[in-house]
Computed example of a mutant assay.
Amino acid sequence: MFEKLSMVTRIVSDQEEALAFYRDKLGFEVTGDHEGPHGRFLTVAPEGDSTGLVLMSPDGFDDETAGQLETLLGNDFGLIYEVDDCRSAYETLREKGVAFRGEPEEMPWGTQAVALDTDGNEIVVQEPVASSSF
C-alpha cells in the first residue's frame, strides 16, 4: 500500500532565512518552490534524496491555525540525517556557522551531533555503526 515517504514538514518563521540555512549551510537542494493553497510551498532535500523537507511558514494560514503552527517553532526534533563521518560533518558545518547543542557523542547506534536550524529545531547528524539495526 505505502511506497515511500515523500515529504516531511518543518514549521519555520521565515522561509527565506530557512532556505538560506538549509541550502547554503547544509547543502540541500531546492526541490520545489511554488504557490500552494496556504502561501509558498517550498521544499528542500539533500542531494539525491527523494524525501523532501517542506519549509512551511504559518503566514499563509488563518489566524487560529497560524497560532497553532507557531507553537511548533523550535520544538521539532524528529529529523535524523545519516553521514559517512559525523565528526568531519560537524567540523564542516560549524565552520559554516551552524550551531550545535554540543560536540559529537558516541551512542550505541553510532556517532551523532545535534545541530539547530534558524528557529532552534533540531537536526541530528548521525554516523551509524556498521552493524546497527536502527
Rank of each mutant, 00 (worst) to 15 (best):
residue 59 D to F: 00
residue 42 L to G: 04
residue 97 G to S: 15
residue 72 L to R: 06
residue 120 G to T: 08
residue 31 T to L: 01
residue 57 S to R: 07
residue 33 D to K: 07
residue 118 T to L: 04
residue 133 S to E: 12
residue 18 A to T: 08
residue 78 G to D: 12
residue 132 S to Y: 00
residue 24 D to N: 13
residue 11 I to V: 14
residue 26 L to E: 03
residue 113 A to Y: 05
residue 77 F to R: 15
residue 16 E to C: 03
residue 96 K to D: 07
residue 132 S to P: 01
residue 134 F to T: 12
residue 96 K to W: 07
residue 120 G to I: 10
residue 51 T to W: 02
residue 13 S to E: 12
residue 85 D to H: 10
residue 44 V to M: 11
residue 3 E to R: 13
residue 84 D to W: 04
residue 96 K to V: 06
residue 83 V to R: 02
residue 98 V to A: 07
residue 117 D to V: 04
residue 50 S to I: 04
residue 54 V to N: 08
residue 59 D to N: 11
residue 113 A to E: 02
residue 3 E to T: 15
residue 109 W to C: 03
residue 32 G to M: 12
residue 116 L to C: 10
residue 127 E to F: 07
residue 23 R to L: 05
residue 102 G to W: 10
residue 40 R to I: 02
residue 78 G to M: 06
residue 12 V to L: 08
residue 107 M to W: 08
residue 56 M to F: 05
residue 10 R to S: 10
residue 100 F to S: 09
residue 123 I to L: 15
residue 9 T to H: 00
residue 34 H to L: 13
residue 87 R to M: 05
residue 9 T to F: 04
residue 117 D to C: 03
residue 48 G to C: 10
residue 107 M to I: 06
residue 14 D to T: 11
residue 34 H to R: 15
residue 81 Y to V: 09
residue 110 G to M: 09
residue 17 E to Y: 01
residue 35 E to N: 14
residue 3 E to C: 00
residue 91 E to P: 01
residue 21 F to I: 09
residue 133 S to P: 00
residue 112 Q to D: 02
residue 67 G to P: 03
residue 67 G to F: 04
residue 54 V to Q: 06
residue 63 D to E: 15
residue 39 G to N: 06
residue 14 D to A: 11
residue 10 R to C: 07
residue 111 T to R: 05
residue 60 G to R: 03
residue 4 K to C: 13
residue 71 T to E: 15
residue 63 D to Q: 14
residue 117 D to N: 04
residue 99 A to H: 11
residue 15 Q to I: 04
residue 128 P to Y: 13
residue 82 E to H: 10
residue 96 K to E: 14
residue 120 G to V: 03
residue 13 S to W: 08
residue 56 M to W: 06
residue 118 T to S: 13
residue 69 L to E: 09
residue 74 G to C: 08
residue 96 K to R: 15
residue 38 H to A: 10
residue 7 M to A: 00
residue 132 S to A: 09
residue 95 E to R: 14
residue 18 A to Y: 12
residue 69 L to Y: 02
residue 47 E to F: 05
residue 110 G to Q: 06
residue 65 T to N: 03
residue 63 D to S: 15
residue 91 E to T: 15
residue 19 L to A: 15
residue 119 D to E: 04
residue 40 R to V: 03
residue 55 L to F: 12
residue 18 A to I: 04
residue 9 T to L: 00
residue 27 G to C: 05
residue 112 Q to W: 00
residue 7 M to N: 09
residue 24 D to L: 09
residue 12 V to Y: 07
residue 86 C to H: 06
residue 91 E to C: 02
residue 70 E to L: 09
residue 126 Q to A: 09
residue 5 L to S: 05
